[in-house]
Amino acid sequence: MPLFTPKFYLKKPTETEQVEPRDYNDNLDAIDNALTEHFADRMAHFECLSLYKLDKDAFGVFVELQWKRENGKLAKRSVFSRGTPPYYSLRTDTYYHEDGVTAKVIKTYLLTYDQDNALISEVLQ
């Protein structure tokens, strides 16, 4: 019985097993699909996205940022909230699937400031 890798669940034959062509091909298909999804997603390649700044508050801070793909569909949205403007204490980042509508991942960051009100950290929650 083969062993499996932890992330992509690829089949690994034991030391006493022969490599089966079907298992080998299944592994290659799984790797190909993972790479195809990664390159299509472009989440890791923000230089390929356009940035839009929205909803400027009374202090001139944009409380929403949107990154859009070349086709105009939303890739990422950041919203600043909580705290006392313009020193927001929370940033919520939403990453979107290729359709630009369906959320894939949501991450929140706690923002902290020093005594001069300079942003000093954004800690993932």
Rank of each mutant, 00 (worst) to 15 (best):
P2W: 12
L3H: 10
P6I: 03
K7W: 09
Y9I: 01
L10M: 15
P13V: 09
P13W: 01
P13F: 03
T14I: 09
T14Y: 10
E17F: 09
E17K: 09
E17W: 09
Q18R: 14
V19K: 07
V19H: 09
V19M: 11
P21Q: 09
P21G: 06
R22I: 12
D23R: 00
D23N: 05
Y24K: 02
D26Y: 05
N27L: 11
L28Y: 07
D29V: 11
A30F: 03
I31R: 02
N33P: 00
A34V: 13
A34L: 11
A34Y: 11
L35T: 10
L35V: 12
T36C: 03
H38R: 14
A40K: 14
D41W: 14
R42F: 01
R42K: 15
M43G: 14
A44P: 03
F46W: 09
E47L: 04
L49N: 08
L49W: 13
S50H: 10
Y52E: 12
K53R: 15
L54M: 10
L54E: 15
L54R: 11
D55Y: 13
K56F: 00
K56N: 01
K56H: 00
K56I: 06
K56E: 15
D57T: 08
D57G: 12
F59M: 06
V61N: 05
V61P: 00
F62K: 07
F62Q: 04
E64P: 01
E64S: 07
E64M: 13
E64F: 00
L65S: 15
Q66M: 08
Q66G: 01
Q66N: 08
W67A: 04
K68P: 03
K68A: 12
R69E: 07
R69Q: 08
R69H: 04
E70S: 15
E70N: 13
N71Y: 05
G72Y: 06
G72A: 04
L74N: 06
A75I: 02
A75K: 14
K76A: 12
S78C: 04
V79Y: 03
R82S: 15
G83Q: 04
G83D: 01
G83T: 00
P85K: 06
P85W: 05
P85A: 15
P86L: 02
Y87D: 04
Y88R: 02
L90M: 11
D93F: 08
D93H: 08
D93C: 10
D93K: 05
T94I: 15
T94R: 06
Y95S: 12
Y96R: 05
Y96V: 05
E98K: 10
E98D: 08
G100A: 03
T102K: 07
T102E: 07
T102A: 05
V105W: 06
I106A: 07
I106C: 02
T108D: 13
T108V: 10
Y109H: 14
L110N: 14
L111N: 14
L111T: 06
L111K: 07
T112K: 11
T112S: 15
Y113H: 06
D114Q: 07
D116F: 03
D116S: 07
N117L: 00
N117Y: 03
A118C: 05
L119C: 04
L119Y: 01
I120M: 05
I120H: 04
S121H: 07
E122W: 00
E122N: 01
L124D: 04
L124R: 07
Q125C: 10
